[in-house]
Design a protein around this nucleic acid. Sequence first.
DNA 1: CGTTTCCATGGAAACGATTCCATACCAACA
DNA 2: TGTTGGTATGGAATCGTTTCCATGGAAACG
Lengths: 360, 360
Amino acid sequence: METIPYQHDEVTPVAASTITIKDVAALAGVSVATASRVLSGHPATSPDARASVAAAVTELDYRPNAQARALRSTRSDSIGLLVSDVRNPFFADLAHTVEQAALAAGYVTLLGNANERKEQQDRYLDTLISRRVDGIIVAPLGDGSGSIRQLITREIPTVFVDRTVDGLDIPSVTTDSEAGIRQAVQHLAAAGHTRIGYISGPQATSTGRDRFAAFTRAVADSGLSQDPELVYFGDYQAASGSAGVHALLQLNHPPTALLAADSLMAVGAIAILHKLGRRIGTDIALIAFDDIEWFALLNPALSVITHSVEDMGRIAVDMLLQVIDGAQPESVVLPSELIVRASSSSNPTSPASVTSQRTN
Amino acid sequence: METIPYQHDEVTPVAASTITIKDVAALAGVSVATASRVLSGHPATSPDARASVAAAVTELDYRPNAQARALRSTRSDSIGLLVSDVRNPFFADLAHTVEQAALAAGYVTLLGNANERKEQQDRYLDTLISRRVDGIIVAPLGDGSGSIRQLITREIPTVFVDRTVDGLDIPSVTTDSEAGIRQAVQHLAAAGHTRIGYISGPQATSTGRDRFAAFTRAVADSGLSQDPELVYFGDYQAASGSAGVHALLQLNHPPTALLAADSLMAVGAIAILHKLGRRIGTDIALIAFDDIEWFALLNPALSVITHSVEDMGRIAVDMLLQVIDGAQPESVVLPSELIVRASSSSNPTSPASVTSQRTN
DNA sequence: CGTTTCCATGGAAACGATTCCATACCAACA
DNA sequence: TGTTGGTATGGAATCGTTTCCATGGAAACG
């Protein structure tokens, strides 16, 4: 691809490998100290100094070195956001909200991706700590072991988001899965389902445990089958959703309805149900935790348990700023709610789900 | 939420507000210089020194200050990735691939989100430059004005990804849209469509321009209608996909097939087509640029023009590492290809698309 | 045994900002 | 006029590293 090399069609500084505040001060005819004061908006500066420094800055096209500034002032004006999986639309949305909210407050966001793996989480935590970010928002994974403990020992401002870690006293903003899951189970029970298959998240995450516990309670309270075989433990990734459906449909008494604990596993579930020729909303009911924009575009539209990712991100940033300021904000629990669409409209008398069909 | 305060159930360093290399050196009984050499793997160190420093490091749980290191060594071991929109699954996947590839090469990735807006792109570029990242991968927006010019004047290692900017001599990895779009148009022409509506990306992006040009050429070469009214200019966001469908269907001679220039606009298009009761693949054909995993799960499954985001991310990181090492890699152009699914199986004789239906 | 070579080491100077402290100036007051 | 007080300024220390340079000792060579 031929491109025209850069042309000097306007006055640009020569070479300018590295321009420091010293150069600015020299050109402005003031000391480094004064230049620094002007640049950081210190009140004790004369109009003269402000003018000449400003002129020098634009002429030299000076950009302060954030490293040096952070080293001396112990603030980096950056926060870290550690999510479990950027490809999960829920976390992509969260990243977007957090990043925008942080930017508005004058912080840049460093995004890390744990890939649902503890060692990657630890690696990124170490990196973020090493870079001396001013605070960290993390959707944690695992128990309190490993690098996560340093958040406490080093007193690094931290907020947990979506998930928590038992035994760590860190403010969090999470979702109350209980309400949404209860509504979903009751909704399915009302349609006559007695055997609901549950594709659970990993028990190494608090959401995995909480949602599973909520499901267990709801099933018991509604008098439905508590057959442990109806629960498949996945890992919040699409492939495990497929595997879960596969396993559950092979049971002697397969479920007539399915509840997937997150959106990616729901995607996996839908994919394999399509492949097996099971009609969602007709042969089998399906509800997913997490609302994704295009879930409503599926045919049939997917019933979901929704919770506000915008609120979660915004509040998390808000809380983190408070922690950075030395406050100790209360943890926040956001509501969840069932949205009924066509995918959960089937009832258990549909023909295809009565007999168990072996698939390979 | 009651949690048990952190317990000292193992030997942990006291308080440890900030542990520097000086503390490590003191405990190890060596000088700071030696400690530094051991830590950075300098060959000129004795086994004794290595052992005692290593012991001190673990005992104190020392983490080097990345700011200070970067300040002195002018390397930050970090790269910046500036994408147009994290919520776009294509860029989420790209972010994931880039981040993993960079991590493998020992770099952390700072993710910025331009939100398809030039001022946010400039803001993030300034920030990344300020933080002295070792290199930048950016899916650029707009012309060569604003902060983007600094990438050249400051000689910052940069690679363009997905998009380019005219007149800037920077290596890039992009997709050859031509082939895929030509296949799509020919496929639709073969089914008898003569009026294809095109929901274009913004002309401020190179992909927006390239794909539009490719569409125009393909339509001309296939002898189809070149009516300029059949083109709607969107902004790569979902809402503009809806707006585009709305506008195109209101024409006196509405199109019988639609081609959307990216996945988000396709999502918007699908949403409004559902709402209007137009059956995709029956009343109207639809093809989208960008393949997203769940596009195949839609009913009818969506025909797409696919290109490999994994290759793109991997190659971009690879090229950036080369540029950082002082090389000048050649730009890479990846292929695109049509995948035919059910959404483009309709032909123009379907009833609903013959008359123009006013909608509001 | 004397000289050269090599290697491990420590002192100290950077890196580029912020910030403490002392100073010089000017206005205001007694 | 002499003291006070406030304000703008510059010099210099500092943040936590890396790295240059000099040094000392041991090994290797003649």
